[in-house]
């Protein structure tokens, strides 16, 4: 009986909070299969993406949280982007690509411009630490 109740509670919990369920799945993949988990598409989250699958973009004009939401909207519409993290303090964003996928610099520049900003620099992979 207790097991049934616990199972129902768990199912309800993961149904109501799918993002948490997704997070749990990431941890499972990472811990038990030794694979790099696919980054979450949740806002301001690059998940557990390995650094080689990330792009660090220095963005000018990045001063407003409310306006910077456009970066998430624009990048997360793409199927090849797993997650995005905005850092207003550094004036940069980190884009986590899905494993094996990438975006060329010209497309990044256009996406940033569509979001209302300008690109100052693009660093790929682990070079930005």
């Amino acid at each position: 009986m207790k097991i049934s109740i616990t199972a129902i509670l768990f199912m309800t919990f993961f149904f109501v909070f799918p993002s948490l369920a997704q997070h749990g799945e990431h941890e499972h993949n990472h811990n038990h299969e030794g694979q790099v988990a696919e980054p979450s598409a949740a806002s301001n989250d690059t998940g557990n993406a390995a650094c080689e699958d990330t792009i660090n973009i220095k963005v000018s004009g990045l001063v407003c949280d409310f306006c910077a939401r456009s970066l998430e909207k624009v990048f997360l519409k793409r199927g090849d982007v797993g997650g995005i993290k905005v850092d207003l303090g550094k004036g940069s964003i980190v884009v986590a690509m899905k494993p094996g996928l990438t975006i060329d610099d010209a497309t990044i520049t256009k996406l940033i411009a569509d979001s209302g900003y300008n690109v100052s620099a693009i660093h790929r992979g682990c070079e930005h630490g």
Partner: peptide, 13 residues
């Protein structure tokens, strides 16, 4: 300084 009520958004916004 900041314009939070931008009258122009991102494409499709």
């Amino acid at each position: 300084p900041q314009s939070l009520s931008r009258p122009v958004s991102y494409p499709g916004g």
